[in-house]
Design a protein around this nucleic acid. Sequence first.
DNA 1: AGATTTCCGATCAGATTCGTTCTCGTTCGG
DNA 2: CCGAACGAGAACGAATCTGATCGGAAATCT
Lengths: 278, 278
Amino acid sequence: MNAPVAIDYDRVVSDTQSDGRRPVFAAERRQRILELVRANGAVSLRELAQAVHSSEVTVRRDLRALESEGLLNRHHGGATLPGELSREAGYAHKVSLEAAEKGAIADLAGALVEDGDAIVIGPGTTTQEFARRLTRHAELAVVTNSLLVAQVLAGSPRIEVMLTGGTLRGPILALVGSAAEQSLAGLRVRRAFISGNGLTAERGLSTPNMQVAGVDRALAAAAEEVVVLADHTKVGVDTMVQTVPPDRIDHLVTDDAAPRDVLDDLSARGVRLHVAQF
Amino acid sequence: MNAPVAIDYDRVVSDTQSDGRRPVFAAERRQRILELVRANGAVSLRELAQAVHSSEVTVRRDLRALESEGLLNRHHGGATLPGELSREAGYAHKVSLEAAEKGAIADLAGALVEDGDAIVIGPGTTTQEFARRLTRHAELAVVTNSLLVAQVLAGSPRIEVMLTGGTLRGPILALVGSAAEQSLAGLRVRRAFISGNGLTAERGLSTPNMQVAGVDRALAAAAEEVVVLADHTKVGVDTMVQTVPPDRIDHLVTDDAAPRDVLDDLSARGVRLHVAQF
DNA sequence: AGATTTCCGATCAGATTCGTTCTCGTTCGG
DNA sequence: CCGAACGAGAACGAATCTGATCGGAAATCT
């Protein structure tokens, strides 16, 4: 079903050697696609097809293959760099996860703050929820290394918010590194509200990331008392780096789905417990 | 058999010319909506639609999706941060104001950045738009005192973002105070991208706030070259505190609605002009 | 309390894009 | 020399996204 094709492809002699060189190989095309996406951050399917001189179907196939390798993200109409948008999805999932528990914990922890206090707040979804409860307080001075906490409190004129410096750790929107730790060095506040990734009676608070661990230690060191906010999914689990030893934890705020034996152990070590009921 | 095909694909294909504009995907649009809401605490539906260049219906759909993920709360007229009482806007409509000019200025300023650069970015809606253009660059080191700029760049793994410390100035979400200035003291980068509130040939860049002025000075002092981003509404106006004298300004990026005489004066003082055309 | 304005939700239509299937040309092996 | 295998383009139907319109609900004003 074709008239004599008058189209002159750029593909030329291929009969001579099996070691042909002119035809555009699939791997080369995919490499170019990847370069284009990396260069622009987001490229439409049509542009890609035009750029590599192939049909949209072919590009679509390539994109599917590249996506399965995790090299890019595919969307309606084109492709984007991985991570830029998928991060939000991951974070969104975390927010909705145990949202009710986090809220109850935040409520309970709010009772540990009084007007006129100076406190430190670490990063995390639970502490962010906790920060929301603070807007009703007056004359608070809050130090934090979390951009999300800072933004939550930004609109409250009666709360003074100070951010530590430091390099931004994208996935959690928190400041880490030596600059962050140093800016906390000369500080002394009443209480620190921290929420790590794991908490056991033996090793205390822990987190899987070295940099985050460093700042968490600095946050705890700046406060007279350390308050740990941890929902039941974190109680009893241990992650890589220890940040706050058990005897340095003064309060633990959690929910009643946390394992009892761990709570008892912690209580025996002098940690005051605040358990949110459902 | 067949009649000669009357279809001429070659002509039809060129219907949609790609004018180099980057495609806007649904996910990206939602990301921007989320940023706007997070930045302002509360944004009206109309403003959102204007800011992302979509219809209100589409924005409404996006808001519904984002709400179901727990990322924001929506009610009559717009959306707010989850669990947050509505805050005063006023910053929101500044974003949409002269959005086209700001975008063009940001595009132009993007040409002043090269891969591997170390730069400083000040607070402001224009600089935020500028930061959005940087995500395609690689191996950038960015220092800023703006939470919005930091957030825009947070998702780019190839850009290292450093925030200055300091106390948070709520309305503009920027860090100010002596802590912010000191953290910039030992720093030396190639270029600083700043956007004050007013710019004249006689007094240079100025801002109505003392604290902001202090940081702006520190930002400029940390860079070899100072680049000012200012749309036409700021050119020719003078505000209270001078931050950067005219002879310290190396580049000015603005749009072609700026008063010519002021631009000429600045050019005579050695400022290189980059004027975005419409 | 009633009227008006504004905004929300639902349905519909248009356009675009995606996935599948089919076909063609090339390459490799017997 | 011929057939199978593979890659690539074309076409069709399905799914999705976007924008417009209309009735109803909510908020505001008088």
